[in-house]
């Protein structure tokens, strides 16, 4: 039986997404064995993040400075704005390194059933950003769920009056996917969204 402190650490780690009690105990044991190296590093890294963690006042990204690294980057194209539901989506898109514009994090998606209303999301701030001008295209990168698509539709309607191009991520055939293994719904969507071969 481990001491109270070790148990507390294990139960804190167990709450991390994708971990659980068994993996947490394994991680604790691993850290305990590397007390001088990995444990110290982890403690310092956690403390540094805790001290400096801020939400970007422009886009809602989480970073250690405000404005965040992406908003402050002069190489980023200010004319393109990509709207995502959560920070995790921003990070996922940015890992793909294809989008060179800036982002806007809504902080969730509309859901009447969960009581998430337009004013609970940073939609007002998004409209302010677009109203300021200088943006040519707004890319709606919501999840392909019902709530995600409702949110995309809602934002498109709210932005209708502005002279910006509104686009949406394509749904369909995944890269490297084999037709034979796709479900009918995805295939039908891919067929609807077909385009001329360039």
């Amino acid at each position: 039986m481990a001491s109270q402190e070790i148990e507390t650490l294990a139960s804190a780690l167990a709450r991390l997404p994708g971990l659980g009690p068994r993996s947490a105990r394994r991680a604790v044991l691993w850290l305990v064995k590397r007390r001088e190296t990995a444990l110290v590093q982890l403690v310092q890294a956690l403390a540094a993040v805790q001290d400096t963690l801020v939400e970007c006042s422009i886009c809602g990204n989480v970073d250690t400075r405000d404005p965040c690294g992406i908003c402050a980057d002069p190489k980023r194209d200010p004319r393109q704005l990509c709207v995502v539901e959560d920070v995790a989506d921003l990070w996922a898109l940015d890992r793909a390194r294809m989008f060179t514009g800036r982002y806007h994090v809504l902080g969730g998606r509309l859901s009447a059933l969960e009581g998430i209303r337009p004013e609970d999301l940073s939609i007002g701030k998004l409209i302010e950003r677009v109203a300021e001008g200088g943006i040519d295209e707004v890319v709606l990168a919501m999840n392909a769920t019902l709530e995600g698509q409702t949110t995309a539709h809602y934002i498109a309607e709210r932005l209708e009056a502005f002279p910006v191009r509104i686009t949406q991520l394509a749904h369909g055939l995944p890269v490297g996917g084999e037709l034979d293994y796709l479900d009918e719904g995805t295939l039908a969507q891919a067929l609807r969204a077909r385009r001329p071969v360039s």
Partner: peptide, 25 residues
């Protein structure tokens, strides 16, 4: 359907653009 019904039964007047978006789905 449950989303639309929730908005319709809300005490506050429902946001028409939100209704548009749900009705589209």
């Amino acid at each position: 359907l449950r989303e639309r019904n929730r908005l319709l039964s809300d005490e506050m007047e429902p946001d028409p653009q939100w209704l548009d978006s749900i009705e589209a789905q």
